[in-house]
Design a protein around this nucleic acid. Structure first.
Length: 182
DNA sequence: CCCTGATTCGC
DNA sequence: GCGAATCAGG
């Protein structure tokens, strides 16, 4: 669906709006899909959009020296370089994540109506889809069609896509299913 | 460690 | 023009 990684007018406009809205580059990249946060930042600068180099002082770094050596032998040409150490800079494929969650909503519904667990319900961070990362719980909460829809967003349990609590929910055997309000 | 944006420069 | 690599700060 989304092999369009070019800056079409529409995408540029979305970028402008999201950037003006104060979203971070990585979140914008996730929302647009197919681009890295670096690509977003690069585009922002190319568009002469006002950077965030203002209040808050996140990036008031003086840029005195240029990059030390330009002799960085990247994987030029061949490309297809595996993510170095952490792949968080790479596009997470928001579309993929979304699709996965959507297709799994049925399962969630079934799982959600289950008897209470030993674990304590974590305090949801109420993250939007665009706020999710590899280490935030992706358990959806609420009606996706409604305004209050969000994700748990707590720290994930190991390699699970969910936090400890929701990971347990996901693993509850169906046989033990009962009725309960989460 | 996680994240943020800024900059440079090969493509 | 594009974006990965790199840098620099919180």
């Amino acid at each position: 669906m989304n092999a369009n990684a070019q800056w079409s007018d529409e995408r540029v406009e979305r970028l402008k709006r999201l950037w003006a809205d104060g979203l971070s580059a990585s979140q914008i990249a996730a929302q647009l899909g197919g681009v890295s946060r670096n690509a977003v930042i690069g585009k922002v600068h190319r568009l002469n959009l006002p950077g965030r180099a203002k209040a808050g002082g996140s990036t008031s770094a003086p840029r005195p020296a240029k990059r030390p050596a330009a002799a960085a032998p990247r994987a030029a040409g061949v490309a297809a370089r595996p993510q170095p150490t952490t792949a968080r800079s790479a596009p997470r494929g928001a579309g993929a994540v979304a699709a996965k969650d959507e297709t799994a909503f049925e399962a969630y519904e079934a799982v959600e109506s289950r008897q209470p667990l030993n674990a304590v319900l974590p305090i949801s961070r109420r993250l939007a889809l665009t706020e999710l990362t590899e280490r935030t719980c992706k358990w959806p909460i609420g009606d996706p069609m409604k305004d209050d829809f969000h994700f748990c967003g707590c720290e994930i349990n190991d390699a699970s896509p969910y936090c400890t609590y929701h990971a347990k929910l996901a693993y509850q055997p169906v046989s033990e299913r009962r009725r309960a309000a989460r």
